[in-house]
Nucleic acid binder design. Structure first.
Lengths: 328, 328
DNA sequence: CTGAAAGCGCTTACAG
DNA sequence: CTGAAAGCGCTTACAG
């Protein structure tokens, strides 16, 4: 690895001049520039980002904190972030919490230490501790998927989507509609989607039986088990809305095993527009949140903020669209 | 953000002593250490990684180059890498090529500039240019999924797996077996898996018709189209082996649309043990490569090499297992 | 148009 | 056990 000093010596100029030439800042004579370019070309010299960062306090790296990295949703969001960031020469420093909320806070520190220029967080909760930390961060942060006081965020219309999908089930003649949700500390997925379900039911004056409401965690098996519990009750629903596609897939897999036909016996719907839902049997009715867009938006936001620190704290709510397929 | 100088002043010691205390290197009296710890605690001081890196030439960051980040395979491998790395306080700097081979080379440079301690590459090809670059890299590199001269690598037994799955189809009574592959510049997926197929057919003295061999690219739609082409020929196969699950899913989706019953009319098998295959209809027979393990192995390898530069260039071939499900 | 010098925030021999 | 000093590789006023 060469250093700027070596390049300067080889080109017979000072380090200052090399720096100016490379950064296009300040005057450099044509001849000097040419000599420098030749040397750079010949040596393959690239300046050390660390030294640069130390001086300029900029790293062109954005920290991204995700709950899990091998799920489709995270994957698409990160892909969206990456594509947008790459356009501007930024890179992603990735941190996965594996759904451990404590780690969310730890990584916030860790990423700061690495002097990232900004942080994008795929939120799983809205704990006040997190909000506080995010608000006192010396660098810009953007939250995806959850709304948090004082933090710019890209959110989905979770309540609206849940209402729409529940209403869709109702419009297809269903009145006994089950619900598979998750813990409400996840405000977007746990609370808002449940609200949407409840509001739709209420609007149509339909009863909501407690034995039709199950709580699960974020995986397929958990959806399977929730469906199993629901069907063991006396009164069985004729349709079920699960707050994620993976939960819905799990529910369907239980129903299939237990001999129920989807959608003839029971209709199933989810949220997420995952491929696994698209190619499962029968294809899953769901809502598309356009996760790549969410990622791209977040990247744009963070880039805006790094360049102009006093950006207003924007909240963006993304569109969704219902995808009706054969599971309903 | 505080600096070591401020901490030193507040604790009434020199910067050297603060550094020694924080890194547990060299002697520090109990009293000094206590004072320093108190100040650090109070201020929430964390040393700048950039300054550290500039001195020590270590960053505790590993660059990971992937073809795409939103696919299940990449996701699982990266998850495996991340988990192992996190144990040792390392982080991932992510770069996605979106299947552009040129970018693979560019990112190799970019990551070096960022002074990562090592690079893990999910390989898609074995171009000599890539091998050469990897071999002259001043930092350790590990390749996953492809074998490359002189580069430590974690590979799957692609030929073995393809042979086994083809033999499995044969053992179920199939003799007319189609093949959906990808370009052979991807040596592992394109060439080795095709070899496995051909060898199994040859071993059982079965004919391989050219109209049973299709080439696709890495997505579901492409598998669909390849299957469509194959079925438009005069002689139709009774089974088809696609080199990835996604291709197999695409093939199945065409067959379904065209009115064929899987597996009664045509059996379908893939490789990858993806969830989408598991929950598709009927569930896909496939081979599990245990991608998380591959990632973890790669991380261990790279960690070994960063600490001990003269590690021998190891090649590891991972186990696979056949998962037989209803698509065959 | 150019270069000497200071400084970013650390670590590490070295002298005491 | 501790501190002064040099140095990692850059950038940026400043003086010329």
């Amino acid at each position: 690895m060469h250093t700027i000093k070596e390049i300067a010596e080889m080109a017979n100029v000072s380090r200052s001049t090399v720096s100016r030439a490379l950064n296009n800042s300040g005057y450099v004579s044509e001849e000097a520039r040419k000599r420098i370019e030749e040397v750079v070309e010949k040596t393959g010299y690239v300046p050390s980002e660390h030294a640069k960062s130390l001086r300029t306090k900029k790293t062109k790296v954005i920290g991204v904190i995700v709950p899990t990295i091998h799920t489709e949703t995270s994957g698409k969001i990160v892909a969206g972030i990456d594509k947008e960031l790459a356009k501007h020469g930024y890179q992603i420093l990735l941190a996965a919490t594996n759904l451990d909320q404590q780690k969310e806070l730890e990584y916030l520190d860790l990423l700061q230490v690495r002097q990232v220029d900004g942080i994008i967080l795929l939120g799983t909760n809205t704990e006040p501790q997190l909000a506080e930390k995010l608000n006192t961060l010396p660098i810009p942060a953007v939250m995806i998927g959850q709304e948090l006081e004082g933090v710019p965020s890209i959110v989905n219309d979770d309540e609206g989507a849940a209402m729409e999908i529940t209403s869709y089930l109702i419009s297809r003649g269903h009145t006994r509609i089950g619900f598979i949700g998750v813990d409400e500390t996840d405000r977007a997925v746990g609370y808002m989607r449940k609200q949407g379900y409840l509001k739709a039911m209420e609007k149509h004056h339909l009863p909501v039986a407690s034995e039709w409401m199950e709580e699960a965690v974020f995986d397929i098996d958990s959806g399977h088990d929730a469906m199993e519990r629901m069907m063991q009750q006396g009164r069985q629903p004729s349709a079920v809305f699960a707050v994620t596609d993976r939960l819905a897939i799990g529910a369907k897999s239980f129903l299939k095993k237990a001999g129920f036909i989807v959608p003839a016996d029971i209709a199933v719907a989810g949220i997420g527009a995952s491929e696994i839902g698209q190619y499962s049997d029968p294809p899953l009715t769901t809502v598309d949140y356009q996760n790549e867009h969410a990622g791209a938006h977040a990247a744009k936001q963070i880039l805006l903020q790094t360049n102009d620190t006093e950006q207003p704290c924007e909240k963006i709510m993304l569109n969704y669209r219902l995808i009706s397929r054969d599971s309903v």
